Every structure is written in C-alpha cells, then in structure tokens.
Amino acid sequence: MTDLQGRKDELTANLARVEERIAAACAAAGRKREDVTLIVVTKTYPASDVRILSGLGVRHVAENRDQDAAPKAAECADLPLTWHFVGQLQTNKVRSVVGYADLVQSVDRARLVTALSKEAVRAERELGCLIQVALDADEDGRGERGGVGVGGVEELAARVAEAPGLRLDGLMTVAPLTGDYAGRQQAAFERLMDLSTALRAAHPAANMVSAGMSSDLEQAVAAGATHVRVGTAVLGVRPRLG
C-alpha cells in the first residue's frame, strides 16, 4: 500500500508540473488552456498507473504496442478513458486495436485504412483516425518514424473520410530527427498546422492536431496543436523493454 501511495504522490507531482507547462505555453501563445488536450502516453507502464492517472483526472491515454495495450485496456475498461493508439500499426493487429482504441493516430497508408474500416464495421464502432504526417519523407514517401509524406495527405484523408466505420479527425506528426526540420520542432509543427488548415477546407470537422511530446510540448502549443502526447514527463523514464 505504501508503494502505491508513493507512486500516486509521484504521478500527482509530475502531472502538476506538466499542467503548469501547458498552462504557461497557452498563456504565452494567447490561447485558452482548455484548447489543448493532454494525452498521457502510458506505454510500458502498468494498468495500476493508468488507474492512478484516471483518479487524478486524466481522460486521454495513448499506447503504441497492441500486445501491451490490449490487456491493459481490458483491465481498465471500467474507467472513463479515451484510448489513443499512436504506434506504427500492422494490419494483422487491426482487429485487436479496434476492440479498444477510440482513435488511431498513426494512419499512414491505404491498406491500413481498408483494414480499419473492415474491422470497425464488423465491431459496429466508429473509429477516429488521424493521418500521421512524415515531415522528413519525400513528397510521396514514408518517414523514418512512420507516416505519409506531405504529398500523400490529401488522398489518404479522402480515403478515411469515405470509409465506413471511420471518422477523419485530423493530423498527427512526430518532430523529425532528420531532414529539413531536424532540431526545428516549432517549424515542423507550424508546417503541420498549415496542412491542417488545408485539410479543414475539404473536411471542416477534421480539426484535431496532435503534436508535441515531453521535450517539445511548448513548441507544439505555440504552433497551435490541439493535443499533446506526454509520457516521460508524467510517468518517468521508461523501463527497458525486454
């Protein structure tokens, strides 16, 4: 019981620090705090941490590996949480992911759209989808960390919008480690905002922009992100995966 209380105290303090950072970034950008949603990335951490975070008011959590996420989501099914899948998704994992995820933020190819649509219809669910944009890719290529190149966003978004069982919610990116935007996170996120503006001209409801993590959430908020994905700053340095 003491260990659990200690972990709760640790997460409470970490979450408060992250909240302060988001609030300060919003104030600096002239934005309202409620305009930015915190998604806590709980990958590699146990369901007990998710339960503590839910008790502290967290409503959005993210996972990137189905084999870890599926049992965790099942264990936490009684909690008022929205589950985001943020990892590169293989089509053979789609049925499982559709069983618990409310949004898939890593849609990056037509074949994945087809698979998600099929399983969403089968499960009688509406699944939110974000197009993952690879700002380090060739115009129509794929990025080092997943995602579709800028030139492929419009076509892929149209596929999602037309697919039964799927809802086009917006765009996601991870700050590139290489290429023109390496070390220029805010410029990368501003580019994503430009793409979001273009997307909303054709799909007005697709207004979600997921960008920024523990190290660069301030730049994402400054650029206009609606959602930030924070793991380490809330949960601590991740244990090594075996």
Rank of each mutant, 00 (worst) to 15 (best):
A70M: 11
A120W: 01
S117L: 07
V174N: 07
A175S: 14
V98P: 03
R122S: 14
A137P: 03
A74W: 09
D78N: 06
A187G: 11
S117Q: 01
L127D: 02
D180G: 14
A115M: 12
K118Q: 14
E162T: 13
V94H: 00
A182T: 12
E190R: 15
I131K: 03
M193L: 14
K72C: 11
R111Y: 00
L166Y: 06
A101I: 04
S117E: 09
S106W: 05
R142K: 09
D136H: 06
A175I: 04
V107L: 08
L79F: 10
G143W: 07
L177D: 12
L112E: 08
A110D: 15
L171C: 10
A74Y: 10
R159M: 13
V174C: 05
L112P: 01
G151M: 06
F189L: 08
L127C: 13
A198I: 08
S106A: 14
L79R: 12
A134Y: 01
G147S: 12
M193A: 14
T114M: 07
A188C: 09
Q90C: 11
K118G: 04
F85V: 04
A115Y: 04
G87R: 09
R111F: 02
A73M: 09
L135T: 10
R145H: 15
K72I: 08
L168W: 01
G146R: 01
R184W: 08
A69G: 13
D136R: 11
R159W: 09
G151H: 01
V104L: 09
L166W: 01
